[in-house]
Each structure stands twice: as structure tokens, then as C-alpha cells.
């Protein structure tokens, strides 16, 4: 069982406060939380706080333990985090990046196990063909998938994804979330993903939290959060919400207001 609790989190950069008293729905094994909000609403900042990359006021608990009280190695065995920026386009090979990451984290895997693990993660993400091509020869979408592979290398029970689908094509946008749902949620893990795409959030998330100017506007099930009123207030668009054929919410954005 995995549990994540986020209560009253505030954080900022120097004097500028970026998050104000953010409380998220309590998350349990197998659940996916989508973080929505316009640009600069604080999604990445909140993701960095959850990933322990940034100090925050408030309580962030993983399995009832204060996040900062968990030893480094244990933390990195349980938590995988994918930053918004994809891996830099250097001459490094994706396999080398995976390998050095696993070794720097001191993951307890033999060379053969690690190689098998990397091969498995790459094949799930369609990266086999570019596993040994320098990162600068990869497209932006492929590099973003490498970024996801890096977060997946340790079979995390908490996976944090900052806009994982931003650079992906139609197939991979859904395939990535299907894969995450199968491999992480299906095994009892928790996923928190900052998303740009409302339809994806409606389809894959159990909970959605809507951020605006560093504050939670509304949080709850997709039906509760994705309403024409909220979208008008937060995104300043006129939208129509309907159920599509497989009983998912479908959001038609009509015009800006």
C-alpha cells in the first residue's frame, strides 16, 4: 500500500511566493492525480516540492512519513521524478544516461540486471532503435520519452511527471499514460502528473487539482473539476463538456474569452 498526503504546502523563489497553502486530495495505491492550470500557475513548482527538489512549508507525507525524514537511497528507490525539461541534446547515448543514473543512485542491480531493465523500459517506450544514438540526434519527443524512461528505471511506487506528454505525438500521448497506468498504478503505485491536455486528464486521472496563481481553485474527480465555469475562470475559455462514447468526459474548447 502506498499513500501520499499533501497538506498546506507553500513555497517560493526568494521573495516571490509561488505556492499558497496547497492541499491535494489524499492519494492511495493505484490512483493517478492530474495537476492542471495555465502557464506559471505553479505546477512545476509543486512537482519540485513533491520530488524533494525544493524546500516547502507544510506537510508532504509518503506512507505517513515526513518526506524529508526518508533517507536518500530509500527515497530514490521509491520515488521517480521526471522534470519538465527533457534530457539535454548532448552526445551522450540514452543507454549511458540510464546507466550512469542508476549507478549514481546506487540502485542495487548487477550489470546484467541493469542492462535487462534498461532494455525493458526502452522497449515499452519505443526507444530500442535509438538506445545507442547520441541524444542530440533524437527528436524532442524521443528525448522526452528518454526522460520518462529515467524516472521509470527504479519501478517507483510514487511517479512524478511534469508535463510528460508535451512534446509527444497523438499515439505516444496516450500510449505513455496507458503504460504508466499499467506499470505503476497497476502495481499499486501512485502517479502525480502535471498535464496540459484536458482530455488526457479527464480520461486517465482519478483526481484532478486545478491550480491558478499558486492556489488550488478546485480539486476532486474529473466531473467535479472539469466544468465550463472552472475552465472559464481559470483558462479564460468558453468550453462545452460532454460524455463521449466510452463514457469519458470530452472537452470542446470553443473560443477564448
Amino acid at each position: 500500500m502506498t499513500r501520499v498526503e499533501v497538506v498546506g504546502v507553500s513555497a517560493g523563489y526568494g521573495k516571490k511566493q509561488a505556492l499558497f497553502d496547497v492541499t491535494l486530495p489524499e492519494l492511495r495505491s493505484g490512483e493517478i492525480l492530474g495537476l492542471l492550470g495555465p502557464n506559471a500557475s505553479g505546477k512545476s513548482t509543486l512537482m519540485r516540492c513533491l520530488a524533494r527538489e525544493k524546500r516547502a512549508k507544510g506537510r508532504i507525507l509518503l506512507n505517513d512519513r515526513e518526506q524529508l525524514s526518508i533517507p536518500q537511497t530509500e527515497w530514490h528507490e521509491q520515488v521517480g521524478s521526471m522534470p519538465q525539461a527533457p534530457p539535454a541534446p548532448s552526445a551522450l547515448l540514452p543507454t549511458e544516461l540510464m546507466w550512469s543514473t542508476a549507478r549514481a543512485l546506487a540502485l542495487d542491480l548487477s550489470d546484467a540486471e541493469l542492462a535487462a531493465k534498461i532494455e525493458q523500459v526502452f522497449s515499452r517506450l519505443g526507444l530500442d532503435a535509438v538506445a545507442l544514438s547520441p541524444l542530440h540526434t533524437l527528436s524532442g519527443g524521443k528525448r522526452q520519452l528518454v526522460g520518462l524512461a529515467l524516472a521509470m528505471i527504479r519501478e517507483p511506487s510514487l511517479l512524478l511527471l511534469d508535463e510528460p506528454t508535451a512534446a509527444l505525438d497523438l499515439h505516444w500521448r496516450m500510449a505513455v499514460l496507458e503504460m504508466v497506468r499499467k506499470e505503476i498504478s497497476g502495481r499499486g503505485g501512485i502517479v502525480v502528473a502535471a498535464l496540459h491536455d484536458l482530455d488526457l486528464a479527464a480520461r486517465y486521472c482519478d483526481h484532478i487539482a486545478m491550480l491558478d496563481h499558486g492556489r488550488i481553485v478546485v480539486a476532486g474527480s474529473p466531473e467535479e473539476v472539469l466544468t465550463a465555469d472552472t475552465l472559464a475562470k481559470v483558462y479564460r475559455v468558453e468550453a462545452q463538456i460532454r460524455k463521449d462514447s466510452d463514457d469519458c468526459l470530452a472537452i470542446d474548447i470553443l473560443r477564448p474569452i
Binding site: A51, R52, E53, Q72, W75, H76, S81, M82, P83, Q84, A85, P86, P87, A88, S90, A91, L92, E96, L97, S100, T101, R103, A104, L105, L135, G147, L150, A151
Partner: peptide
């Protein structure tokens, strides 16, 4: 430091996300 230097070629954001 060879592992950390290698993964740093994948970008600073990645290194930071690992708590480095």
C-alpha cells in the same frame, strides 16, 4: 564523480531531480 559527471551531460534539470 564519473557517474554524476556523465549524467550531468543529460542536463542540469535531470541531475537536480535526482537530488544531486
Amino acid at each position: 564523480h564519473v557517474w554524476v559527471l556523465t549524467l550531468l551531460r543529460g542536463g542540469e534539470a535531470h541531475a537536480l531531480s535526482l537530488g544531486i
